[in-house]
Amino acid sequence: PWQGRSIASSKLRMLEFSAFLEQPQDPETFNKHLFVHIGQSNPSYSDPYLESVDIRQIYDKFPEKKGGLKELFDKGPHNAFFLVKFWVKNSTLNPLLFNSFHLESHFYSCKAQSDTVHVSYILRPHNPPQVMKTEYARFENGRYMFRIHRSPLCEYMINFIHKLKHLPEKYMMNSVLENFTILQVVTNRDTLETLLCVAYVFEVSTSEHGAQHHIYRLVKD
């Protein structure tokens, strides 16, 4: 039931994704601020399918000489492509330490095989745009899991967040964020097949309830 209703292709399913800032309050407790968060969901067949977005509307936001969104989508498989609009929660924490920014992401393989995957993050605008990580599957509870646990955010992202926080008005932050995108591409290391591709765009949250998001399937009608 999760196919078409959550971030999942026929090969790989995303369970969780978050980026957060963590600061010690005292030696035993930490304040944790989630900038963005996709929590676990358990969709059923009665849930509606995700809304779709025509991928041609956002191609230009994810350009690349080689391996950009258009080229990746043309290669397929088309059921592996998603768009996430994040409403980012502004932080009241005052980060001083660079090692307090983290990213977590959990996936599991829908196939009963132990693949090794490459996870790349293509940041725009940034030169060079790619941050690449290799992840190895672990067998847990009958599934092959990929757990990216407390991975430090790259220096570019941390500096970007610092600069954004110093803008005095929300519309200024949104204006900067309109030109900032991240493309997360998970590929099978051996076959180079695209397992999952998630295009992220951002806006500042106006909610008091924390980071929010919408997920869309990317299609070409």
Binding site: D54, W87, E178, V201, E203, S207, G210, Q212, Y216
Partner: peptide, 24 residues
């Protein structure tokens, strides 16, 4: 040369793209 992009607001995107979800 820099290519001027179409603002997101002028693109064909679902209405929900501009509506921040409310906490349920």
């Amino acid at each position: 040369s820099a290519v001027e992009q179409v603002p997101m607001r002028k693109r064909q995107l679902p209405a929900s793209f501009w509506e921040e979800p409310k906490l349920t």
